[in-house]
Write a protein that binds this DNA or RNA. Structure first.
Lengths: 140, 140
DNA sequence: GTGAAAAGTTAGCAAAGACTAACTATGTGC
DNA sequence: GCACATAGTTAGTCTTTGCTAACTTTTCAC
């Protein structure tokens, strides 16, 4: 009985993690697209590819999926725009990213490692954890 | 110039994250296999599947890959064993998991959320971050 | 010791995310 | 205004990770 319950609980945890993993790439993309639009006025596949370290056709295919999911809009041979849903997700991601980053630096990590770790961690922190990170980063 | 360098730097970060993502599942498996062997004396596909919340054939297929990669050994219709490489990885994962978990709890997170978040975060923390987490968790 | 339940495997499907090669469109320099 | 470089797309491949359905093996109860 105990075993069953604990197996179920474990399964739920892993299902949650798998769910998060499925969303990671989309989050990376919309966050990056928002950054590019802000920095350069537009988000082009070639720049997305360079920033992510993948080839352009990989980006094309992923953008198709994001469009299918309603996070971006695009026209053939033109650059990419975020839908309002995509913008909202990008904002949320940026917020998480910044909190995690500030937290890690405040903890004493060098900024470069902090950036690396934040990129991996940000997709896996609950709101509750984020709140704790934030208050740690903000404490006097 | 600056743009190019920063794009390259970004790309390296993402390449690192993608690398970590590729290893996550293997790490989850060996960690769980080690737990099952310790708790129940053996690791059976049916239990692995139940704990991970996936179907048994999915487990079979992934175990094939882990065997191919030298992390486990197995015989048809028999339970799974870790190689020394697999054991070492499992130990390392457990260590990381426990440090992250203790850290989150010490930070004030409830144990259940801590467990969820630790499961996602543990694959993305550098040794440097881990050291900081550990000293925070151990401080008086 | 046999037969049914449980466990495990195999085959085959689908989607995602990576790649290369080959093609098409865009835009720029002269 | 045209040619060519750059950007983007399309097609096709591979691997991973999920699934179901169908089959085989093992185990256990009687």
């Amino acid at each position: 009985m105990t075993d069953e319950r604990s197996a179920d609980a474990r399964a739920e945890v892993f299902q949650g993690v798998r769910e998060a993993r499925r969303n990671e790439l989309a989050e990376d993309y919309v966050e990056l697209i928002a950054d590019l639009i802000q920095e350069q006025g537009e988000a082009r596949p070639v720049d997305i590819a360079a920033r992510l370290g993948v080839r352009v056709p990989t980006v094309t295919k992923t953008l198709d999926r994001l469009a299918r999911e309603g996070l971006i809009t695009r026209a053939k041979y033109r650059s990419v725009f975020l839908t309002s849903e995509g913008s909202a997700l990008a904002l949320e991601c940026r917020r998480r990213h910044e909190i995690v980053l500030r937290f890690l630096i405040r903890l004493g990590l060098d900024p470069e490692t902090a950036e690396r770790d934040a990129e991996g961690i940000e997709h896996h922190v609950s709101e509750r954890t984020l709140a704790l990170f934030e208050s740690y980063a903000n404490r006097p």
